[in-house]
Amino acid sequence: MKYVILIHSNPQPWGHPTSDYLDAHKALPADVRARLQGEFNQVMTELSANGELLGGEALGDPTAARLYRWRDGDPLVSDGPYSESKEHLAGFFLIDVDSQARAEQVAARFSGPDETVELRLLMWPGGDDQ
């Protein structure tokens, strides 16, 4: 089963890894930060070694995005950010795992203060005829 893990965040200034630019994360005691970092590295190593990681990318600053809206039959271009909300899509990881439980276990490890991690199932082009 394939999933995408979406990281919604608002690092200031915009940068990656997002946790290095989030006040709430920087305020954590050093040992807690080290533990979180260690756990994250471990899950990434694990995903890669197991052949569960399909890929992933970090995204650029949302204010530098270009937006195309439809106006009077033509695209009208403006500057980002797209979303009015506090957090923006900052990056994503694609995984292929055995079960929903494993996907949830992995997604939980991407979580940190002042960020939202979203786990979404990928649609696939098949189905059952029963």
């Binding site: 890669s48 070694a49 052949g51 990681l53 399909l54 292929d96």
Partner: peptide, 15 residues
């Protein structure tokens, strides 16, 4: 056939 990158499949086999 499984719609995954060859790198991922290689890792699966190596593992």
């Amino acid at each position: 056939a499984y719609l995954v990158p060859a790198r991922t499949m290689t890792q699966r086999l190596t593992r």
